[in-house]
Amino acid sequence: MSAPLRIGTRGSALALAQAGTIADALGGELVVIQSEGDVNTQSLASLGGAGVFAAALREALLAGDVDAVVHSYKDLPTAPIAGLSVAAVPRRADARDALCARDGLTLDELPAGARVGTGSPRRRAQVAARRPDVELVDIRGNVDTRLGRVGAEDPERRLDAVVLAAAGLSRVGRSEAVTELFDLDAWPTAPAQGALAIETRTGDETLAARIDHRPTRRAAAAERGVLARLEAGCAAPVGARAFVEDGMLFLTARVYRLDGSAQLTSSHATVLDAGVEDELAERVAAELLAQGAADLAPLGASPASQED
């Protein structure tokens, strides 16, 4: 009898829930790996973006400590790592962002001066664009920690609302906390939000290939392709949405000024064929850059960023 597949995961409740579904599907066992992002309480932007969560998992995989690792695909840097491959992208969950507010309020119903928590520059820009009169609070922590600050007794910790991923809330059984779901057309989310990526050593892709969902993989590839071509990190103020429908691949991406005062959008579609994800992402990113995206947001393509 062969040994069970060793599947690496972070130790948060959300990561364990996500990886648990993959372990069930593949007949594997979970191996918990701690990352810098799990122990460092600095803001996500100051740590260098969501890639801090992926690094430790990838190191364990390259070292042979595990056979596969499970990532929230939106946390995975777009630059490939030699020796590793994305073996599967399972069917995507809800890609929307969700507001979790006190007293069942929506974003438009929050009073002026309300304190809204999020650790994402994109979400900060989106909230500020719609509600410039609220106070934005940078927060970190797992889902329960963030939700626990909504209506908290301690005035220093108290928030009126937080913005989280609908998929994450669902995966840890906290969907009842949602008071508003934001429409993806008006409020595009992080590239590949709601999707998982199962990474293996190159050559071992068959370990997870049977749970790959091709339409999700292609949509996620198009969204992440825009991020890569903008030379933007995982925490950049960039939202994207791609989907497959009627033999077509549709892609929209939006770049925000950090304070929410301006935004640029590009949308294109193409007949679904081999390799069109890259071509479509190139068209969308090029149009955004031509419109001035590098001057609007802190992208790697901007001269200011290259000087750092």
Rank of each mutant, 00 (worst) to 15 (best):
R241D: 08
P298L: 07
A236N: 03
S2E: 11
A221M: 06
A222I: 00
R130L: 14
V238K: 01
D259M: 04
G27R: 07
R6D: 01
L62R: 14
D160E: 15
L159A: 11
A293K: 03
D273V: 08
G141Q: 04
L5Y: 06
A15W: 01
D65F: 11
G83R: 10
V127A: 00
F53W: 11
T216Q: 03
A290T: 06
R96V: 05
A165D: 14
A232I: 00
D94K: 06
R254N: 02
V244T: 15
P111H: 09
R122I: 02
Q291W: 03
L47D: 00
Q42H: 13
T145H: 11
V178D: 05
E36A: 14
V89A: 01
L44S: 11
R96G: 05
E279T: 15
A128H: 09
L264H: 03
V284C: 03
A281G: 01
G194V: 08
S43P: 08
A25M: 11
S175G: 15
E199P: 14
P188Y: 09
R140Y: 14
G119E: 02
E109N: 10
D185E: 13
A192P: 01
T78H: 12
C234T: 15
A290K: 08
A195Y: 05
G8H: 02
E282V: 04
A285C: 01
L207C: 05
T265C: 02
R140K: 15
T21W: 10
D273L: 11
D212A: 14
L272I: 08
F53Y: 13
V172I: 13
T206K: 10
D108E: 12
E135S: 14
A23H: 10
A129E: 12
L299Q: 01
A17E: 05
V150N: 00
L62F: 08
A15Q: 11
R210I: 13
E180V: 03
V32G: 06
A63T: 13
V238T: 13
L164S: 06
V86D: 05
T21S: 12
G37R: 02
D94W: 11
